[in-house]
Lab assay of single mutants.
Amino acid sequence: MLDDRARMEAAKKEKVEQILAEFQLQEEDLKKVMRRMQKEMDRGLRLETHEEASVKMLPTYVRSTPEGSEVGDFLSLDLGGTNFRVMLVKVGEGEEGQWSVKTKHQMYSIPEDAMTGTAEMLFDYISECISDFLDKHQMKHKKLPLGFTFSFPVRHEDIDKGILLNWTKGFKASGAEGNNVVGLLRDAIKRRGDFEMDVVAMVNDTVATMISCYYEDHQCEVGMIVGTGCNACYMEEMQNVELVEGDEGRMCVNTEWGAFGDSGELDEFLLEYDRLVDESSANPGQQLYEKLIGGKYMGELVRLVLLRLVDENLLFHGEASEQLRTRGAFETRFVSQVESDTGDRKQIYNILSTLGLRPSTTDCDIVRRACESVSTRAAHMCSAGLAGVINRMRESRSEDVMRITVGVDGSVYKLHPSFKERFHASVRRLTPSCEITFIESEEGSGRGAALVSAVACKKACMLGQ
C-alpha cells in the first residue's frame, strides 16, 4: 500500500517536472537572447534605426563620474514606483581627507489618484512632500541643488532636461508624456511658492545606482535594477552614441532593455503563462523582457503555473481556492519566502493557508518547484541581457580580458534567497573573457542622484555659470 502511494507521488512529481521543464533555458538559448539583445542595442544607438529599435539606448548626458572633490548639501528625489523618497545628502571631506556622503531620508507613498490623475496632481503632491521634508529638517530658507531620480523612459536633451516617452509600472498621470519632466517639477514648486529649489540633474535609477557604486569602486561602469521592473545602464564610447554629437570619451546610456521583445525577438521563448500575464497587464505587448524578470510579474506567473497544475490534477487534489483564482493573489514576496523555507515546509504551508488552501507535504514541495522554475528562468533571462552589455563593452574597448564592476539594486536581487547566485553564475558562463565584480548599492537611487548633481554643480562652477 505504502509502495503504491510512494509510486503515485513519484509519478505525480515526474509529471510536474515535465510541465515545469518549459521554463528551462539551455545555454544556447541564452546565447541567442544575448546576441539578439546586442543587435537591438546597436539599432538603438544608431541614428537611422533608433526610432524602430525596441531597446532605445537613451543617452543620459552623464559623462563624468564623481571624483571626490564636490562638497555641499544636496536634496535628492526618487520616483520610480508607488513609494517616493526625499533625501538630504551631505557631501563633504571625511576623516583623513576621505570623501564622505551622509544621508537623511523619508519615504512617502503615492496615492492612487496622483498616479493615475493628471501630471499637475502628481507633481503638486511631490512638491508637497518636499515642503514637508524641508519643514522637518528646518531647511526651507536654503535654496538647495536638487537631483531627481526618475525611473521611467526619458529622452534627455541635457542633464536637466528630459522628455517622458511613456509611463510604465502602473503610472498613468495624463499630460506628462511628451513633456519635460524637470519643467513639470519646477512648475509645481513655483505653484507652491513656499520654498526654492535648483533642479540641476535628472537621472534614471540605473544611472543613480551606477554612480553610487562608483563611489565604492571606481571600476563600476554598469548599473542595473532588478526590482519591480528590470533595466540597466553602462558607459558607452561616445563615438557609438549617434544621437549625441561628439566622439570623445564616454557617456552613460540608459538601455531601457525592459522593452526588448516588443518587436518579436522573444516570441519563441514566451510561454502561455507569459501571454496571460501580458494580456492582463496595463501595457499589453510592451516591456516583454521586463515581464519575464521583474517583481511586478513574478508572483503572478507562479500563480498561473499553480492553476495549470491544479487543472492537471497534480496539486491540491485538483481544487483551487477562490483566493488562488484571484489575479495578483500570489505576491512576489511569497516566491522569495517559499524558496527561503528551511525544509520543514512550515513557511510554505503558512503562505498557502493564507490563500485558503490546506496543502499536503507533496503540495508544498511542488509549489516550491514552481517558484524555483519561474525565478530561475528570470535570473537566466536577466543574465543574457547583462552578458550582452558586458561583452559589447569588452569588444568596443578591444580588451582581451576586461575587469568590470556592476552596481545592482532592486528588491528581487536583494531579497530573493537564490536569485543573485543563479544570476551571477549564468552571467559568468556567458562572459568567459571578463572578470566581473557585483556590488549592491546602498540607498543607491538617492545618493547617486545627489552625486550626479554634485558633478553638475562642479561643472557649472568651472564653466562660470
Score class of each variant (00 low, 15 high):
359 P>G: 09
373 S>N: 06
42 D>M: 06
337 Q>R: 09
238 M>T: 07
237 E>T: 03
172 K>I: 09
46 R>D: 08
358 R>E: 15
204 N>R: 07
173 A>K: 12
64 S>G: 14
306 L>G: 01
237 E>S: 08
177 E>S: 08
3 D>Y: 01
341 D>P: 01
211 I>N: 04
392 R>L: 05
73 D>N: 06
342 T>I: 05
378 A>F: 02
318 G>K: 07
398 S>V: 11
61 Y>M: 03
72 G>S: 02
156 H>T: 15
189 I>Y: 12
355 L>Q: 09
338 V>N: 00
37 M>P: 00
344 D>A: 11
219 Q>S: 10
10 A>D: 13
275 R>I: 10
329 A>Y: 04
257 W>F: 13
221 E>S: 08
361 T>S: 07
347 Q>P: 08
358 R>H: 08
253 V>H: 01
203 V>A: 06
392 R>A: 02
138 Q>Y: 05
286 Q>S: 14
39 K>E: 14
42 D>C: 13
232 A>G: 02
69 S>C: 06
454 A>R: 15
444 G>W: 12
373 S>Y: 04
94 G>E: 09
293 I>M: 14
396 S>Q: 08
156 H>S: 10
334 F>H: 11
318 G>A: 12
80 G>E: 08
459 K>M: 14
317 H>F: 10
6 A>G: 09
198 D>K: 03
389 V>M: 11
438 F>Y: 06
462 M>Q: 10
262 D>G: 14
355 L>V: 04
311 D>A: 11
45 L>Q: 01
391 N>Q: 07
88 L>D: 07
126 I>Y: 02
63 R>A: 14
429 R>H: 13
432 P>S: 09
44 G>M: 01
202 M>I: 03
208 A>N: 01
241 V>T: 03
307 L>C: 07
130 I>N: 00
279 E>W: 09
37 M>Y: 10
178 G>R: 12
295 G>F: 14
410 G>L: 11
257 W>N: 02
380 H>G: 13
93 E>L: 14
94 G>T: 06
173 A>S: 11
58 L>H: 07
428 R>K: 15
17 E>F: 14
85 R>Y: 15
314 L>I: 06
328 G>E: 08
36 R>C: 08
26 Q>V: 12
245 E>W: 05
296 K>C: 14
64 S>C: 13
194 D>T: 05
85 R>P: 04
120 E>K: 00
49 T>S: 05
202 M>L: 15
461 C>P: 05
418 S>F: 12
94 G>A: 13
423 F>D: 00
441 S>W: 03
144 L>M: 12
104 K>G: 07
400 D>L: 08
379 A>W: 01
387 A>M: 01
27 E>L: 12
369 R>M: 14
382 C>M: 08
277 V>T: 06
297 Y>P: 04
326 T>N: 02
417 P>I: 01
223 G>K: 00
355 L>N: 01
348 I>R: 03
345 R>D: 15
120 E>S: 05
382 C>L: 11
159 I>K: 15
69 S>V: 12
323 Q>T: 07
165 L>W: 13
217 D>R: 05
187 D>H: 06
249 G>Y: 03
59 P>I: 00
232 A>Q: 00
347 Q>G: 14
254 N>E: 05
278 D>P: 01
461 C>L: 07
112 E>T: 09
365 D>T: 10
141 H>F: 07
234 Y>R: 02
212 S>N: 04
412 V>S: 09
51 E>R: 15
433 S>Q: 13
417 P>D: 12
397 R>Y: 07
40 E>Y: 01
143 K>P: 05
141 H>I: 04
241 V>G: 01
235 M>G: 02
250 R>L: 12
348 I>T: 10
114 A>P: 04
226 V>S: 03
368 R>Q: 12
23 F>H: 00
362 T>K: 02
27 E>V: 05
351 I>H: 01
301 L>S: 06
332 T>C: 08
253 V>Y: 00
301 L>V: 13
63 R>M: 10
207 V>I: 12
360 S>A: 06
394 R>T: 02
276 L>C: 13
365 D>G: 09
30 L>H: 05
423 F>E: 00
461 C>Q: 09
428 R>Y: 09
436 I>E: 00
19 I>Y: 02
171 F>G: 12
250 R>G: 01
287 Q>V: 09
292 L>P: 00
385 G>T: 08
191 R>V: 04
257 W>P: 00
298 M>V: 02
31 K>T: 02
28 E>L: 05
62 V>A: 04
75 L>S: 03
84 F>C: 12
293 I>L: 06
114 A>E: 14
363 D>K: 00
192 R>K: 11
171 F>E: 11
393 M>W: 03
55 V>H: 00
380 H>N: 13
381 M>V: 08
459 K>E: 06
179 N>F: 14
104 K>M: 09
142 K>V: 13
328 G>M: 12
52 E>I: 07
180 N>S: 12
424 H>T: 13
407 G>S: 04
275 R>W: 02
436 I>C: 13
265 E>T: 09
99 W>D: 06
438 F>V: 04
340 S>W: 11
186 R>E: 13
393 M>P: 00
281 S>E: 10
171 F>P: 11
47 L>W: 03
163 I>C: 14
28 E>A: 08
326 T>A: 10
415 L>M: 12
45 L>N: 02
236 E>Y: 01
364 C>G: 06
411 S>F: 14
296 K>I: 08
355 L>P: 00
27 E>C: 02
431 T>L: 04
206 T>N: 03
297 Y>R: 03
68 G>H: 10
390 I>C: 13
90 K>C: 10
369 R>W: 07
340 S>M: 11
456 A>L: 06
116 T>N: 05
33 V>E: 01
399 E>R: 07
287 Q>E: 04
315 L>M: 11
34 M>S: 08
177 E>K: 05
139 M>V: 08
456 A>T: 07
138 Q>L: 06
125 Y>W: 07
199 V>M: 12
160 D>V: 10
53 A>L: 00
448 G>R: 08
255 T>K: 01
79 L>N: 07
265 E>A: 07
100 S>R: 12
4 D>V: 03
373 S>G: 13
451 L>M: 10
42 D>Q: 15
380 H>K: 14
132 D>P: 00
170 G>Q: 04
61 Y>H: 07
25 L>N: 02
109 S>A: 12
180 N>C: 15
216 E>L: 04
263 S>H: 14
401 V>W: 11
280 S>M: 11
153 P>R: 11
7 R>W: 08
6 A>F: 10
129 C>P: 04
3 D>S: 11
284 P>R: 14
366 I>G: 02
439 I>G: 04
